[in-house]
């Protein structure tokens, strides 16, 4: 049941992400590389949706990118303790979908997962399978 809800939220996010990607890139110059696109997600896209940039971006240069947001907007309204750690993934599914949808509309197929270890901060891992 919970899984159903999460995948539904993820799908909704995906559709919204496609629209947002279309809107946010309206005036931006053409992207040269995959990294350009990821940087766009970290900057313009994040600012447009969460009013802040991401705090850290790491990559292994093999198609895996990790985005760290140390004060993630959708989690800041929850208690910072351990109390809601379990239900946090429900709040991240939509955002995972957003990122996946945006990347999809730039022509990149990806898998996006999220992870919370301490409360307002969270990590998104984007893996882009190499063809």
């Amino acid at each position: 049941m919970t899984n159903n809800i999460i995948s539904k939220l993820e799908q909704m996010g995906c559709r919204v992400g496609q629209s947002l990607a279309e809107r946010f890139t309206r005036d931006s110059p053409r992207f040269g590389s995959e990294l350009d696109i990821i940087k766009f997600i970290c900057k313009e896209f994040w600012v447009g949706t969460f009013k802040k940039q991401v705090d850290n971006l790491r990559t292994n240069h093999l198609g895996v990118y990790v985005i760290l947001d140390s004060r993630f907007k959708l989690l800041t309204h929850m208690s910072a303790g351990e109390q809601y750690l379990e239900s946090a993934p429900k709040y991240l599914a939509f955002t995972c979908g957003l990122v996946r949808g945006a990347l999809a509309s730039f022509g990149i197929n990806s898998v996006v997962t999220a992870e919370v270890s301490t409360m307002p901060s969270c990590k998104f891992q984007i893996s882009i399978p190499k063809t």
Partner: peptide, 11 residues
């Protein structure tokens, strides 16, 4: 005819 093109970031 003259043909002009435009490609968005979303291809």
């Amino acid at each position: 005819y003259k043909v002009y093109g435009y490609v968005t970031n979303t291809k």
